[in-house]
Amino acid sequence: MSGGPSSEATAELVDVTVRFGGLLALDRISFDVQANEIVGLIGPNGAGKTTAFNVICGFQKPDSGTVRFPALGRTALKPSQLCAAGVARTLQGVGLFVNMSVLENVMAGAQGHVGRGFASSLFGLPAGRRHELALRDHAMVQLERLGIAQFASSLPGSIPYGISKKVSLARALMGNPSLLMLDEPASGLDESELDELAQLIVELRESMSVLLVEHNMDFVMPLVHRLVVLNFGEVIATGAPSTIRTNPDVLAAYLGVDP
């Protein structure tokens, strides 16, 4: 799968290098995410996983190399362009809007899609209002899909952590993304929540590509089609979970054994 034609890839990094002063955070890394594929980005702390995410999202400009979204027909995107282009990302932790209800948080997920102008807002035009109501309905559907509709009017600070993570996922799904990027989706979840999440990701994969950063190997291994292993800013292995499990370089990186 890894050598597939790049024109089909949802997202693709080619020879991306990022330097923070003297530190080489990413050293000419290349990997891609194919359509309807679940890819796991793993590696020890400080390996550059989040930096790679930030490069894809446009938060971090690579010093060299390119980011492309061939299936979306786009090259490097700014963060505020992601939503409209079809890329959604959840943040490490939860990253919700703390003073807004759960429903409003989810509605916000489609903020980049709608083209209602300032005049429509100012005059309270009927089209703008109809649009808001449709958005509200759509957000309720997302909440119901994840089984958390009863929390619609709650504030993020008053709901359990597991529910918050679902809210941030519902928000990401609002934009009907082609690429869903999940930053540590499993952290802080209990066994039953993990099973539920894994099942959901498998369902989502029918209609989108999923790229996730995760530490919980028991969660990642059975879920993903392909793993990309980073260590000290380099891709040390790429492949199916079964081959990665026995890869000597990966074992060395994780266990500190010399290959």
Partner: peptide
């Protein structure tokens, strides 16, 4: 309000 509450998340939803 999105910008006020969490500017990184606001950017990610297209603000």
């Amino acid at each position: 309000r999105l910008v006020r509450d969490n500017d990184v998340a606001a950017e990610l939803v297209g603000v």
